[in-house]
Design a protein around this nucleic acid. Sequence first.
RNA 1: GGAGAGAUGGCCGAGUGGACGAAGGCGCACGCCUGGAGAGCGUGUAGACGUUACCGCGUCUCCUGGGUUCAAAUCCCAGUCUCUCCGCCA
Length: 423
Amino acid sequence: MLDLKLIRTNPDQVRAGLAKRGAAGLIDEVLRLDQERREKLTNVETLKNKRNVVSKEVGRLKAAKVEATNLINEMKAVNEEIRELDGVVRELDEQIDAILFALPNLPQADVPVGTDDQTNLEIRHWGKPRSFPFEPKPHWELGEELDLFDFDRGAKISGARFTVLKGLGARLERALVNFMLDLHVNEHGYTEIFPPFLVNEDCMVGTGQLPKFEEDMFKVAPGDYYLIPTAEVPVTNLHREEILEAENLPKKYVAYTACFRAEAGSAGRDTRGLIRQHQFNKVELVKLTKPEDSYQEHESLVQDAEKVLQLLNLPYRVVLLSSGDMGFSASKCYDLEVWLPSFGVYREISSCSNFEDFQARRGNLRFRPEPDAKPEFVHTLNGSGLAIGRTVAALVENHQQADGSITIPEVLVPYMGGITVIK
RNA sequence: GGAGAGAUGGCCGAGUGGACGAAGGCGCACGCCUGGAGAGCGUGUAGACGUUACCGCGUCUCCUGGGUUCAAAUCCCAGUCUCUCCGCCA
């Protein structure tokens, strides 16, 4: 959520930022509502002050056994007015919030301006796509031949976009989860979190999934719970409504969770294989930082995620997303895109975003810069480290051999119980 | 699922209709004291919003939301969460 005071004091800056994302409108509406709200608020607070003063006077008079009926009747009338004005203010609040909750974050100055991925900027790349002396197969073919994935039975027991992992396929999934968690905990200094996979509505609003993207979420029937679309939601919200001490920042968390996405609007896209599932596993990195540190922490978070791909020997590139391609809550976002031989393209495998104070304001995540100083909003960041299903797909495709077998990267062998080749 | 108890500031804890944004203690910050530390003494110590050149002033918040009342931490209703006992259960 954008800062209402920033909109009030610097509307042109906000308009310009939103324009880069094709979301310019409604600032004038916010300003008008805000103006009206503050007028009504002043009115009603004046009346409440009067009520408070007179009520104390009534108390004094009664204690002195003096008649106070006139004052009491007068306050009854004032109360009517207060009730009415309170309603007006509340309605204005709701209208303002409805707009603010629907406005995306402002892009940072160095974010390329564009309407879609055409203006994304490749920052660097690592590794070289292998040249195969044979026609590389897609991961779903390799996986079915090696009995790693069972797409048909996934569809049978659940539906489209659900897959059963089997044997060494299941083992590979588990190995990758453990490998990534160990790397980030032991080498990169993150604290491991295992959160609930169901969260309440406040969390979904806090990180920006709600109210705008309800149709992308799975909502669970008894109780008002949502299945998490990413560990970002429970982990970022761990400290919602809290005031953290500056000395405890940055908070660096890593969490494995299953993720659940309705994929509304993706019908027909990536229907084969593991690329786009309703349920997938992910190891997620989350940071809460001081505002002045978030830009540097963003860079190091990207590098922490890149390290996974490097150790797995998977070629990738780092892309800086354009203003039109970024997620709703992000102020700046790098995607890591891994090379998929069967597609002949780089595909997103990690999205690393700095949200600045956008989520923190929604979830009221604050810190105290100095003892006795006023609390400020933290900056929140997160990135996949990595999406497991897509890593499996990339690993299987990139490390396939002419005979249809898959070589296991060295770092993963211990996690695979010593297995070096899947055949 | 049944029965009961509870939720107050960073923490502990008092407070059952009016001088309570809230005693007291702990913690923390600053000052005095000390060669230094400790002890002791003193002062200060919630957040949001509005208003304001500044000092400040005002409103709201004692789990949340309603209600009663001139006036609610305190009374009433609904909900959330925590704890204890019983049942069931991975």
